[in-house]
Design a protein around this nucleic acid. Structure first.
Length: 397
RNA sequence: GGGUCGAUGUCCGAGUGGUUAAAGGAGGCGGUCUGUAAAAUCGUCGCGCGAGCUACGCAGGUUCGAAUCCUGCUCGGCCCA
């Protein structure tokens, strides 16, 4: 593959590369020297569930690996003490070191689903940040001005809105930038919310005293979540986890708004741009969405599982039938009050909620609505219980 | 250190002594509709079967009655030093 083609492949889906021609220069340098590029990604070990939004970045790094380059994952065990303010309107809570260790282990595990383990290094930034003396730190802080930090969008917003900014948060970009220095990063990956942090890395690397070839910033768009508005994130609950069961992933993709399909094709699948553009134009939205769901599930579960998930989804939603693999729920007593049954299956957080579901016709037994919360019913083995749209259980006495 | 303003339900936000489990919005959930979704539309959203209980930063107090008044505290914004 020529350098030009590589650039094209890598740039697919990227929202921004800084500097613009930097990627080409880096690739040329690597080809000439025979040294693989070091592609850096910093992770806050806070939320160890990898979802499709995060996978966007990981999959891009996998492309780098497939072209012969190396990935360095930096677990921000030290920076977590600070708490990255990016995209947060409020100061993050600090984690204990046990939590950090636990989360980091989970991360490494999940990362290997997408990344090539052979070409991935994992480092903890306490390794170098923990060694800095106060004098070192002060020296580092002298390389950047308060005004620079305060131009950063999220700080600026908080400042303008009169929200608190702790002094320690201002140090975060420096710490992250120093990570790049420590590992001689060539490329740093991130979402656009990482712009400032990544550019700070460039700034430090090009400082005369450090004199490294500054990394390029490689920005991937933030994937919009299931709600179609906010970025996909675990805390917002609008995510599709890469470890989720095939059917669950499939269903979630199907529940996307039609308008989001193009973005998902681009960022979450390998379907060539021209091809999915054609699909979106030619097929009706549901067909296109089935294709999208199939492509995505295939990446994480294989084609066979994806097809099975597809069939199952159609059974449930198009034919409105009971899912074949509904979890079994053993009834604690028989006959049983409906509210107790719904609660027993954990389908409602409180009795009042359960009653409401029942009264509003959200609970079905063998396809028939049960609308009297006071009723007591007799269960037969194999009875099919549905609560709301998504919860199913096959009852066992 | 001083002054001043603020803290309300998942979030935003109204409410300055009584019909306030707390307007309105966002959001969630359920029903209907539908080719998936969206949209639309109807309903619902503290806990409790209920009597009732618990809730407006925290702790006390005034009052027949407090989210609303008073005192102290905690946290935060702004201004002054």
């Amino acid at each position: 593959m020529t350098i030009e083609e590589q650039v094209q492949l890598l740039a697919r889906g990227a929202s921004l590369i800084v500097p613009e021609n930097g990627l080409k220069a880096k690739l040329e340098k690597s080809a000439k020297t025979g040294k693989p590029l070091i592609v850096k990604l910093g992770l806050d070990p806070t939320a160890p569930d990898i979802h499709l939004g995060f996978a966007v970045v990981l999959r891009k790094m996998r492309q780098f690996q497939d072209l012969g380059h190396r990935v360095t994952i930096i677990i921000g065990d030290y920076t977590t003490l600070i708490g990255d303010p990016s995209g947060r309107s409020a100061t993050r809570p600090m984690l204990t070191s046990e939590q950090i260790a636990e989360n980091a282990a989970t991360y490494v595990d999940q990362l290997s689903v997408i990344l090539d383990k052979e070409k991935t290094d994992v480092r903890f930034n306490s390794e170098w940040l923990g060694k800095l003396s106060f004098a070192d730190l002060v020296k580092l802080t002298s390389k950047i001005t308060v005004a620079q930090v305060l131009t950063r969008d999220d700080f600026k917003k908080r400042w303008d809105a009169g929200q608190p900014i702790s002094l320690h948060e201002l140090l975060y970009p420096l710490a992250q930038g120093y990570d790049s220095v420590a590992i001689h990063a060539d490329v740093e990956m991130g979402g656009l919310d990482q712009t400032f942090n990544i550019l700070t890395g460039r700034e430090l690397q090009s400082d005369p005293e450090i004199a490294q070839d500054p990394q390029i910033g490689f920005f991937m768009p933030l994937l919009v979540g299931l709600d179609g508005v906010k970025k996909m994130s675990k805390s917002l609950g609008n995510y599709i986890g890469i470890a989720e069961p095939a059917l669950s992933q499939y269903s979630k993709v199907m529940s996307l708004a039609d308008a989001q399909m193009g973005t998902y094709f681009l960022l979450c699948t390998d379907v060539p741009t021209a091809e999915f553009a054609e699909i979106l134009k030619a097929q009706n939205p549901m067909e296109a969405k089935h294709r999208l769901a199939w492509e995505i599930v295939t990446i994480y579960h294989g084609a066979e599982a994806a097809s099975a998930a597809s069939d199952e989804w159609k059974r449930i939603h198009s034919a409105r039938q009971f899912p074949s693999d509904a979890p079994e729920l053993t009834v604690p007593e028989n006959p049983i009050n409906i509210v107790a049954l719904v609660r027993h299956g954990n389908f409602a957080p409180s009795n009042g909620e359960a009653r409401r579901l029942i009264e509003q016709g959200g609970v079905k037994l063998n396809g028939e609505k049960l609308s009297d919360p006071a009723a007591t019913i007799t269960i037969t083995d194999g009875d099919e219980l549905q609560v709301g749209k998504k919860n199913f259980a096959r009852l066992k006495v």
